[in-house]
Design a protein around this nucleic acid. Structure first.
Lengths: 341, 341
DNA sequence: ATGAAAGCGCTAACAC
DNA sequence: GTGTTAGCGCTTTCAT
């Protein structure tokens, strides 16, 4: 009785509930009941035991396709992203969404579209055909989007983006709060002449972070000095160029729009032999692990909450969390203190 | 006839084939045939047209759950990854896999496990229940893995990792070739004293790249000098420390085990005022976009082919591509020339 | 406490 | 050419 061939691992998986029922000497209904631990149905301990045994004797696995079909809805959540490969950000969104989805018994269907409208439509159609419970539409940086029409056919939630017409619930980082946090990191260290190297192109981040910077300054009773805010076009190169100006204008600290700008700035400072944070304190934004944690000295920064954005996205999608009226839901950007302040 | 409410976008999607059949005045079989453009079945142009019209009048979408159920297999491919969020690498694997899967009409089911065995088992079980066609098991850096038992229940392919017992087909980067490529980049620029700052911990990458380095040197008729190969433990910090030694030993070029080591090395060189590539040429490895493309000067490096790894993974899984006997399939690491050589 | 039967939306023979 | 029919694996009344 020990050298029976083990049926458990054949590739095709034709072990159905009926097989289990036959082996256990019960009906499929009974099997269904014990498999799902149905509350209402009382099954005798004996039968239950026989079923359990048959199940692992045969290596039975429920067939979700059938299960979902009969229930009319699947337990899939679609996630369409515009740039999975280019940044680590999308990965964090996926990760957050996946974990939260799992927690509620859902599975993620992922599609990358590279921002191509046709690919998006195709992805959404595919998800709809799979009867997804809803779709998370996400971008890798915070911005306004023009959503594909097909999104309207299901429950959709925008992640790290928003539609200007407020058609869908949206979840975005709190840029203003983040700008404030970054500035406060510097303020708390006693700095009063704090420069801000901002991006040049307008965006929710560019505007929001600036506003946060001004608010923090105002709260600290420091007059805003626009000599101290610079706008750069490139990231690393811009930071490098801005380095000199910042020094000339007598700043003792600088808040960089993002970590990459800080990275360029570091280069300039190193060349000029100015020490961080001794002679100039710097804080970044984004918390791009690869950069921030490994610059010399490690960069204090403010994190973009991508993981949380993804997680909140599924919560909202599942109706577990509310979003304010027409407004996007704001997720806080927490400070990450390292050694540059 | 114009103010009929548009049924197209109600969230629940109860428009079935039967509805279409009724509206078009045909049978469901006919609808099925036109929807699937069945080769064998000849449908009259008139009926075909009526069906088409009914379809978009009602906003009908096929129900994949039902379709897959009746066919016995789904068109899902599972991808289990150990670190989606921490590096951009996983994103590239996902992206490659997703695109290739799509091309063949498959959809990706993604699960992140953070390397936790229990999470892996759960993920695999879930995928199996969804009747996936197969599973891609991937890691974010090239290494040997001990595969979860449940993988054996389906077709599995290892991506960026391999099982020592060769139980599953595996696809990994060609580290030796990559090491060679990196070295040749330097050789081609006329360098003869080329240092190699390697990682200290043994790994396929650590061993393979070193071998490639030696082979390239040998091919160029340059004697191997072990004074010129350094082993560092940390990445950025290690590179920084190694900088001095490299200079002392009279190297005119250096091949860094990865871009992060190169990043640390850059810092040291900048401090000592040595110019790149004028006084010292450097090449990295990995092609971590964020770092390599934005260092000053931009770093020449060798790319890890994650995208291709993922794509090849699904091809192998689908039986579209063969892997050598017990060996992993090697994917080339192409050079990326920027300005540090 | 357990089983019979209907049916989820679709495909695939096989009739007509 | 097009319709009829029998399931795919499962859940779920409703009987017994």
């Amino acid at each position: 009785m020990a050298n029976e061939p083990d049926r458990r691992d054949r590739s095709a998986h034709p072990v159905t509930m009926r097989d289990v029922a036959r082996v256990a000497g019960v009906s499929v209904a009974t099997v269904s009941h014990v498999v799902n631990d149905k509350a209402g149905a009382r099954i005798g301990a004996a039968a239950r035991e026989r079923v359990r045994q048959a199940i692992d004797e045969l290596g039975y696995r429920p067939n979700m396709l059938a299960k979902n079909l009969v229930r009319g809805r699947s337990r899939f959540i679609g996630l369409v992203a515009d740039a999975i490969a280019t940044t680590p950000f999308a990965g964090q969104i996926i990760q957050g969404a996946q974990k939260e989805a799992w927690k509620h018994g859902f599975v993620l269907l992922v599609a990358n579209t590279e921002g191509d409208r046709e690919a998006e439509d195709e992805a959404i159609a595919m998800m709809l055909e799979h009867q997804v419970r809803g779709i998370l539409y996400s971008t890798w940086y915070h911005r306004a989007v023009d959503t594909p029409a097909a999104l309207g056919e299901t429950t959709a939630v925008l992640v790290d983006c928003y539609s200007p017409d407020g058609q869908f619930p949206a979840i975005v980082p709190d840029e203003v709060g983040g700008g404030r946090t970054a500035t406060e990191l510097l303020l708390a260290a006693g700095h009063r002449r704090i420069a801000f190297v901002n991006a040049a192109e307008p965006s929710p981040a560019q505007e929001g972070r600036l506003r946060g910077y001004r608010e923090a300054l105002a709260d600290a009773g420091i007059a805003f000095d626009d000599e101290l805010v610079l706008a750069v076009h490139d990231e690393q190169d811009g930071g490098y160029e801005a380095g000199r100006t910042v020094l000339q204008r007598g700043a003792t600290a600088v808040f960089c729009y993002n970590d990459r700008i800080a990275m360029g700035l570091y280069d300039r400072l190193r060349e000029q032999g100015v020490s961080i944070p001794g002679e100039l304190a710097v804080v970044g934004f984004d918390n791009q692990e690869i950069i921030a944690a490994h610059l010399r000295p490690p960069l204090s920064t403010v994190a973009l909450p991508h993981y949380e954005l993804g997680a909140a996205g599924v919560r909202v999608l599942l109706g577990l969390e509310e979003v304010p009226d027409g407004e996007p839901l704001l997720v806080a950007c927490p400070p990450v203190s390292r050694q540059s302040v």
